[in-house]
Design a protein around this nucleic acid. Structure first.
Length: 449
RNA sequence: UCCGCAGUAGCUCAGCCGGUUAGAGCAUCUGACUGUUAAUCAGAGGGUCGCUGGUUCAAGUCCGGCCUGCGGAGCCA
C-alpha cells in the first residue's frame, strides 16, 4: 500500500466495472448530440469516453460538460460501465464534474499538422496518443537496459559529462568555459571513463546523455542523445558480441511483453520483433565487402567536376548508409559486422593479432532500415601500442596520461560497446524519425522548446 | 558544409499563361439534435500571400538577395 496519494487510472477501469470512480485528467476530444455530451478523457494511462446525459445530472453540471474544450483539466466522477459501443469496451456514465481549468484555443487539433508546427509545439504534442505511446516504449526500453545489466552483475558507474578533451579526437564537440582551467567539452562518450571504472569494479555500465556537435541532418541523428555503454574486464571481442546479442534480444522481448497496446497504436508489425532471437547474424567486414561486390552494390563517389562515378567497393573504405542498407536487406534480425579496417576506426581499438590491418571492432545493424544501433570493440590493452596510436593520431599524450595508466597497472583484455537509446526506440516503436523518440529533441536547427 | 524542396486564414492546402473583390476543408463562435468516434445540418467571424529589392499599366503569381523550415548526403549511437 503506497503512502503517497493514489487515485484511479483509466488503464485500470476494466477491473472496476459497476463502481463509481473519480478520474483526473484532461479532455482529449468532445462531441455532442443534443442532450448527450461525449467527453474523451485522457489521464496519461489511457483514454476513456465519458457520457454526460442531461436528465441524469444537474443543469449546472450539464452546462459545464457542454462548455468543455480540448485539453481542459477536469475531475470526472461516474459509474464504470461495460459498453460494446465504446472503443476499449468501457465508458463512464458521468454523475459529477469538476473543472480545474478551461483551456482556450488549444493549438493541436485532432486534424493533421505539419512537422514544423508540431515540433514548435513539442511540449503539447507529447500529449497526443501516438507520442505518449512512443514515450512509454522509451521508458520500457530504458528499464529493460537497466534490468538487464543490474541482473547480470554490472554496476552503474556514471561517467562525467564535462570533460577536458575529446574522447576520440574526431567528432566536433560542444565547448564551454570552465573557470580558470580553459575550455571544457560536453562528453561524446563515457567509454574511456568506463574503462577506468571497469578496472575498479569488473563489469560496469554508464547510461547518460552524450553530445555531438556534428551538423548531421538525417532522421537518425540528434546532437544530444542517450547512450548506454557497458565495459567488461576480461572480455574479448567475441564475449562482447555475445553480450550485445543477449542484451538486444532482452530489450526487444521486454518491449513485446510490456508494450503491446503502445505497439498497436504505432501500427507496429510485432511479428518482425518476435523474430529478434539469438543467434543474430554475424559477418566480418571483409566478408561484407565481398558480399557487396558479388551483389553489385557500387560505391558512388563525386568527381572533382561534380559528376558521380560508380566503383566496386574498395577494401578499406568505411560503410555508409547505402552499404549498410544493402547488407541488411537480406536479414530479418540484427547483424553484427566485425573486424573493420583499423585505419577507419578509433585509436583505442585493439588490432587483431592475426591481422593487424583490422581492428577488433564491431557494429550491430538492426533490420527494417533501422541501421546502426551499437558500436563497440575490444580495447587496446598494450601500453606501447596504445601510446603509438595516440602519437599517430596527434592526440595529447599528457591528456591521456591517466588512460595510459590503465595499461600500466594491471592491464587486462577488456571490451565494451555503446548502444544508442533513441535509435533502439526508433527501431522498436517503428517511429519514422528519431526526433519523435526523445521528449525534447536537440537538433542542428532546433533547441526550442 | 553540400544537393534538392517549401513558406498563402489558428491548422492542412488550392490559387492556371501576371489581370479586376483572396479560395476550400478543418478548427473557433452561435443555433438544432438521446449514441457520437475526424458526427451531421444551418449561420458567423477570421488574411502584412515569409522579408526585401526589382521588372510591369498591373505581382500571391516573374527575377535577385535574405530569413525560416523540411528531405537527403557525409559523420556517427
Amino acid at each position: 500500500m503506497s503512502r503517497y496519494k493514489s487515485y484511479h487510472t483509466i488503464e485500470n477501469l476494466p477491473n472496476l466495472i459497476g463502481q463509481e470512480v473519480t478520474l483526473n485528467g484532461w479532455v482529449y476530444d468532445t462531441t455532442s448530440k443534443g442532450k448527450l455530451q461525449f467527453i474523451k478523457l485522457r489521464d496519461g494511462s489511457g483514454i476513456v469516453q465519458c457520457v454526460a446525459f442531461k436528465q441524469n445530472i444537474s443543469e449546472e453540471t450539464f452546462e459545464t460538460a457542454r462548455s468543455l474544450t480540448q485539453e481542459s483539466s477536469v475531475s470526472i466522477t461516474g459509474t464504470v460501465k461495460a459498453d460494446e459501443r465504446a472503443e476499449n469496451g468501457v465508458e463512464i456514465d458521468v454523475t459529477g464534474l469538476k473543472l480545474w481549468q478551461l483551456a482556450k484555443d488549444y493549438p493541436i487539433t485532432p486534424k493533421e499538422h505539419g512537422i514544423e508546427f508540431l515540433m514548435e509545439h513539442r511540449h503539447l504534442w507529447l500529449r497526443s496518443s501516438r507520442q505518449r505511446a512512443i514515450m512509454r516504449i522509451r521508458a520500457a526500453v530504458a528499464k529493460a537496459i537497466r534490468d538487464f545489466f543490474d541482473g547480470n552483475g554490472f554496476r552503474l558507474q556514471d561517467s562525467p559529462i564535462l570533460t577536458p578533451n575529446a574522447c576520440e579526437g574526431t567528432s566536433t564537440l560542444f565547448s564551454t568555459e570552465y573557470f580558470d582551467l580553459g575550455n571544457a567539452y560536453l562528453s561524446q562518450s563515457g567509454q574511456l571513463y568506463a574503462e577506468a571504472t571497469a578496472m575498479a569494479l569488473g563489469r560496469v555500465y554508464t547510461f547518460g546523455p552524450t553530445f555531438r556537435a556534428e551538423k548531421s541532418k538525417t532522421r537518425r541523428h540528434l546532437t544530444e542523445f542517450w547512450m548506454v555503454e557497458p565495459e567488461m574486464a576480461f572480455f574479448d571481442l567475441n564475449d562482447d558480441m555475445d553480450l550485445a546479442e543477449d542484451m538486444v534480444e532482452y530489450i526487444v522481448q521486454y518491449a513485446l511483453k510490456t508494450c503491446q497496446p503502445e505497439l498497436k497504436i504505432m501500427g507496429r508489425d510485432v511479428s518482425k520483433l518476435e523474430a529478434v532471437r539469438r543467434p543474430f547474424h554475424r559477418m566480418s567486414y571483409t566478408e561484407a565487402v565481398e558480399w557487396l561486390n558479388k551483389n553489385n552494390v557500387k560505391l558512388n563517389k563525386k568527381n572533382q567536376d561534380g559528376t558521380e562515378s560508380q566503383y566496386d567497393f574498395p577494401w578499406g573504405e568505411d560503410f555508409g548508409a547505402p552499404q549498410e542498407e544493402a547488407i541488411m536487406s537480406q536479414f530479418d534480425k540484427p547483424c553484427i559486422i566485425h573486424r573493420y579496417p583499423s585505419e577507419v576506426k578509433a585509436f583505442y581499438m585493439k588490432r587483431d593479432p592475426e591481422n593487424p590491418k583490422v581492428a577488433l571492432a564491431m557494429d550491430m545493424l538492426a533490420p527494417e532500415g533501422a541501421g546502426e544501433i551499437i558500436g563497440g570493440s575490444q580495447r587496446e590493452d598494450n601500453y606501447d601500442l596504445l601510446l603509438e596510436r595516440i602519437r599517430h593520431e596527434n592526440l595529447s599524450e599528457e591528456a591521456f596520461q591517466w588512460y595510459l595508466d590503465l595499461r600500466k597497472y594491471g592491464s587486462v583484455p577488456h571490451s565494451g560497446f555503446g548502444l544508442g537509446l533513441e535509435r533502439t526506440v526508433k527501431w522498436i516503436s517503428g517511429a519514422e524519425h528519431i526526433r519523435e523518440v526523445i521528449p525534447f529533441p536537440r537538433m542542428i536547427y532546433r533547441i526550442v522548446p
